[in-house]
Write a protein that binds this DNA or RNA. Structure first.
Lengths: 242, 242
DNA sequence: TCAGTTCATATAGCAACGCTATAGGTGCTA
DNA sequence: TAGCACCTATAGCGTTGCTATATGAACTGA
């Protein structure tokens, strides 16, 4: 029940802290747990890391190496915005794979004291956005874009971590991701714009849906279902009190 | 040095906790501090609130009242999306005005345990988005839109709180805000949804009708008919591509 | 070779923490 | 007046982060 291999105590402390942090389902990890698992006593921890936070910072630094490695671990696709998309997804996945570590890294917010890790992550994203800017694909400054995208990325990841694993819906991530990337990109808008000048009445909405259904050929309903659906739609849209 | 007015101990505890929380610049607040300021002893706290977290939850509940009041404290502009914008700004301002309280409310993330406050805030935003949907101004489900917008809103607010007050740049907020609102909106002049996956007018119309039906109480269909009708409507409005 | 110095670890314990077993006081109802 | 429910206090438990002090090991210079 101890990590007393040949490694020096400093390493054993780091590994013990990381391991306990990963296993502790949100519960706080005590220095006594850590030192016991590492097979050392309290003063050793404070000799090497100053205090508990110093140890955690060191663990975070190691975690950040892994994070950065993940963020770089794919060949540039040649499309910077596509790479940003992958960075986003990697960020979310990192958070979901190691939620405790992620919370220490990005969730441990204190007023007026910015974790260094956030600045690093921003720099990483800004670097990638610079390529997009160089390719004329950005309509805002890379730094502002990076801050904005990262803020949303962290917000989404925190939300997903807070949800029960069974209810997690990654569509929240992809939707927010594409919204942010689209907003900073300079791609010329193309395609038809849906018309939605309707008022809030049920009747108007039903009529609009009716017209839209007639025009398109949606196959979400079978023909018999569609027939009945249209009949009800008609009944609603001819309702006197909308 | 104590809040021992005529108020009952329960109230004094609540006020003491709120006051210490507001003043403690990020530092943790102990139960001993709270009980001393309130002029009571430890068991009183645990009698009324169960444990420390229960007391904090009560403080948060009071804070949430204030938050909700702020979110509703403006006359509806008639333009739901403009109201969403104001909700966003109010959210950020609330966080910057009371960072400690905000961090307890939205920053205290633990894996797999969602703060009730988040669900409430989502419901609040979803309510507003329903109006936008009813007006045909949304191209995604109000619930998904609310989750996405709120996630980004929280992320931005946390980032701003973490920054030194002198460096805070609210443009981060407005930029992210407009990006999110634009992404979920179906405004004609605005172009298609991000990524080129524009929703067809059928989907927009179906979402609008759905919202309108929820809002009104049309009796044109029987309850069993309505149930099936809504199910089909859902199938249409979640269709991957019109 | 050996005293002097530095580094690294252990023993033991402090103050503060969240929390509680137990008991006493208060005010209401019967 | 008796009984009961509610509320608060005394005192203290176990755990927390951290440290004053001491001991051993390794290196250094004469």
């Amino acid at each position: 029940m101890s990590l007393d291999g040949q490694l020096p105590p400093k390493m054993r402390l780091l590994r013990a802290a990381a391991e306990l942090l990963a296993k502790s389902a949100g519960a706080p990890v005590s220095t006594r747990q850590i030192t016991q698992l590492a097979g050392v006593t309290a003063p050793t921890l404070y000799h090497h890391f100053g205090d508990k936070e110093g140890l955690f910072d060191a663990v975070v630094a190691a975690g950040f190496e892994e994070y950065v490695a993940g963020e770089r671990d794919f060949a540039p696709s040649g499309q910077p915005l596509e790479d940003i998309r992958r960075m986003w997804d990697n960020h979310v996945q990192f958070g979901l794979n190691q939620p405790e570590l992620y919370l220490v890294m990005f969730g441990n917010i204190r007023p007026e004291s910015r974790p260094a890790i956030v600045a690093d992550a921003e720099a990483l994203m800004e670097e990638m956005l610079n390529k997009a800017a160089a390719a004329g694909q950005l309509n805002v400054q890379p730094r502002e874009a990076a801050r904005s995208i990262l803020a949303a990325n962290v917000g989404v990841t925190l939300m997903l971590i807070a949800e029960p694993a069974s209810e997690r819906n990654l569509e929240l991530s992809t939707m927010t991701r594409d919204a942010m990337i689209f907003a900073v990109s300079a791609e010329p808008a193309s395609g038809p714009a849906p018309g939605g000048t309707g008022k809030s009445s049920v009747v108007v909405a039903a009529i609009a849906l009716n017209a839209a259904l007639q025009a398109s050929h949606s196959d979400q309903l079978s023909s018999s279902e569609l027939k009945l659906f249209l009949e009800w739609l008609h009944r609603i849209s001819t309702s006197p009190a909308g």
